[in-house]
């Protein structure tokens, strides 16, 4: 029986999943598969998996829950293993690497920041210049408060797309500084959108 795999955790005790559900319609009950003193959180694979709101949110909700319960290595949406035994074997074989990464992520969360132009669009040249300076400014301001960061090419109307891995005790300072940036830029050119705390999708 194929299983859908959500994430890997080293939490002790393992997360209590009674009554918790994941992807599918009806949502499939969650369970853990132990191996190499790690636990994978899985459910039976649904007959139909869709990258639409229902299943994406279910995936995200499970990982949120695991993040709150001692940390998680989030798997990419849509991961299927042939059966529980394959999951167990993989955990056993790769436990050292997973454990090391979980330790590096311990107590950290991802914050995902995007910025877009306000509706009055500048010329392409202006836009390029402002985009570059914005990215540099944001990285300079927030980078020191993060363990790691990861930028991507912004898509659509966005001009900034960057994730930060922030340790718990740095989160108030991070949020405070980000809020100030948002106010400064919000008054003029850019609209910021910050999401978090999230499971550390970008830092696995």
């Amino acid at each position: 029986m194929a299983v859908y795999v959500y994430g890997i955790t080293a939490a002790e005790p393992p997360p209590a999943l009674d009554g918790a559900h994941g992807v599918g319609d009806p949502p499939r009950p969650l369970r853990t598969v132990a191996g190499g003193s790690l636990d994978a959180v899985v459910s039976d694979a649904p007959e139909e998996l869709r990258a639409g709101r229902r299943d994406v949110r279910a995936h995200q909700d499970v990982l949120d829950r695991l993040s709150d319960h001692g940390g998680v290595l989030p798997l990419r949406f849509g991961t299927l293993a042939p059966d529980d035994e394959a999951v167990r074997r993989t955990l056993q074989e790769r436990a050292p690497g997973y454990r090391e990464r979980l330790a590096a992520l311990d107590g950290c969360a991802e914050y995902h920041l995007r910025a877009s132009h306000r509706p009055e669009k500048p010329t392409a040249a202006e836009e390029g210049a402002r985009r570059d300076s914005l990215a540099a400014e944001v990285t300079a301001a927030l980078g020191p408060l993060a363990r790691e960061s990861r930028s991507s090419d912004p898509t659509g109307e966005d001009v900034l797309n960057v994730s930060f891995l922030v340790a718990q005790d740095e989160q108030p300072a991070f949020l405070d500084r980000e809020a100030r940036l948002a106010v400064e830029h919000g008054a003029s050119a850019f609209r910021f959108r910050l999401h978090g705390p999230l499971p550390p999708y970008s830092f696995v």
Partner: peptide
């Protein structure tokens, strides 16, 4: 809207385990 913004993270990041398949 928050789900929308993090869709890219959920679908395109996260750990990939090569011995497992990924439907999407």
């Amino acid at each position: 809207s928050s789900l929308y913004d993090v869709l890219e993270l959920i679908l395109d990041r996260g750990l990939v385990i090569d011995v497992f398949a990924r439907v999407s």
